[in-house]
């Protein structure tokens, strides 16, 4: 069984120019060419894409949700990063 194992690829599709690639799912393929072909057949049958990225799942590095508070919460209280934090006097434009 191991001899025939085809690696798992994650697939990202750009629906149309101007948009980012979005993750749509995964599939198995024996090589990169096949991954693209299969992605086209599986995820763009109804014209849903102009560009495909296929990435071997094992190469993806993901943040750990258990650490999400350490990773993400500190940003929540650095409110000076948001434009709404700053007062702009009435009548001042282009700011």
């Amino acid at each position: 069984m191991n001899n025939e194992q085809w690696p798992l690829y994650e697939i990202f599709i750009r629906a149309k120019s101007g948009l980012s690639h979005r993750h749509v799912g995964s599939l198995h393929a024996s090589d990169a060419d096949m991954a693209l072909d299969h992605a086209r057949d599986l995820y763009t049958r109804r014209g849903e894409g102009v560009s495909i990225w296929a990435v071997e799942s094992r190469t993806i590095i993901a943040s750990d949700p258990a650490e999400s508070s350490a990773l993400f919460e500190p940003a929540a209280d650095k409110i000076y990063r948001h434009p709404t934090f700053y007062e702009v006097p009435d009548g001042v434009e282009n700011l």
Binding site: W6, H28, M34, D37, H38, D41
Partner: peptide, 11 residues
């Protein structure tokens, strides 16, 4: 021989 191939051939 594999589902993905059936999809391709049906296409």
């Amino acid at each position: 021989p594999e589902l993905e191939e059936e999809l391709a051939v049906a296409n």
